[in-house]
């Protein structure tokens, strides 16, 4: 009996000690360099997003923050590396839905549950776009009619298979009962060329990336995969308006490994939230044609990802990409 008592006491003491240790850890955090990893190469959207936030975070936290690109396997290498690091807040990753796809395909040991969101920073709408002057089908009704009449004959350009644009187009076709032919390209620019050259009928793009062509009247959106219409495309309906509940857009956020002590997570969340509400960050969003609704707190974003995650697993299984 005595033994149990003692061991209980010891356990309690340990607990207290651990508790105080983490508090101390959080109070001290950050006391050394923070390493921040991105899965894409330098100069891309994720890189610019990360550098915009990290520059200010460096000042806020007062420690060096080193951003490194750890590309490979669409985030697999970055996530695997993160899993090997201690959950202490000194390893931060930029997360996009491509990484969610990688996790859903089980190309990495990491899963959605292994990550805690710090904040979402970008929400870039996607649209099914067409080149009105050369396209065979001038609006979404014509595309749907054509795809129904000739299954598999309407060609839709996507960037890489199993990517967020592939999934958006797939979800739409599933909801509308269509069979589309997907043509994978290596980037949005190639899709634009193929659209303008009349090689494909439509393509999934982020309008923000091709605003130059939109302003010139060469490209327009046929259907949007966001909830609300966009002011740049007053005539383009959302998928929801057409009666298909499809929402699939490009997002980027910041995450740490699960198990990072709560106070440390809170500290980073607070600092990042402040940065993202700031003038500089809002200007970055505006310059890249994204709205202020892009920003989500860590809690909100975690819930958002929890909602999207099962969808990814389901689609990757359906498309045969889940290992």
């Amino acid at each position: 009996m005595k033994n149990i008592k003692w061991s209980m006491l010891a356990l309690a003491a340990c607990g207290l000690l651990w508790q105080s240790a983490t508090t101390v850890q959080a109070e001290e955090f950050p006391s050394k360099q923070i390493n921040w990893y991105i899965h894409s190469s330098a100069g891309g959207g994720t890189d610019i997003f990360t550098r915009t936030v990290s520059a200010e975070l460096r000042e806020k936290l007062g420690v060096p923050i080193v951003v490194s690109s750890m590309s490979g396997g669409s985030g697999a290498r970055m996530l695997n590396y993160m899993m090997e690091q201690p959950a202490d807040g000194y390893t931060i990753v930029s997360l996009t839905n491509s990484n969610l796809a990688t996790m859903a395909r089980r190309n990495t040991e990491a899963q959605r549950e292994d990550l805690v969101g710090i904040a979402r920073g970008c929400y870039d709408p996607q649209a099914l776009m067409i080149a009105p002057s050369v396209a065979k089908y001038k609006n979404i009704d014509e595309i749907i009619a054509a795809a129904k009449a000739n299954p598999g004959k309407v060609k839709v350009g996507i960037t890489h298979v199993a990517s967020v644009d592939h999934v958006a187009a797939y979800l739409f076709s599933k909801a509308a009962g269509l069979q589309l032919e997907y043509v994978p390209f290596s980037g949005g620019g190639e899709i634009v060329v193929a659209l303008l050259g009349g090689v494909i009928d439509a393509g999934v793009l982020n309008p923000s990336e091709v605003m130059g062509q939109v302003e010139a009247g060469n490209l327009t959106a046929a259907v949007l995969f966001v909830q609300e219409r966009l002011k740049d495309f007053p005539d383009a309906p959302t998928a929801k308006e057409l009666g298909y509940d499809v929402e699939m857009n490009t997002w980027r956020g910041i995450a740490v490994k699960k198990g990072t002590p709560e106070p440390i997570v809170k500290k980073i969340r607070d600092a990042v939230a402040e940065i993202m509400q700031g003038e500089k960050y809002q200007k970055y969003l505006a310059d890249n044609s994204m709205g202020p609704e892009s920003v989500m707190s860590g809690e909100q974003w975690d819930a958002f990802m929890d909602a999207e995650w099962p969808l990814w697993k389901e689609i990757m299984t359906e498309l045969g990409y889940r290992k």
């Binding site: 610019i48 990336e209 091709v210 605003m211 130059g212 062509q213 939109v214 302003e215 010139a216 060469n218 310059d287 890249n288």
Partner: peptide, 11 residues
């Protein structure tokens, strides 16, 4: 794009 220019036919 970062500098607010939108490359395209109208640039």
């Amino acid at each position: 794009m970062v500098h607010g220019m939108r490359p395209g036919p109208l640039m």
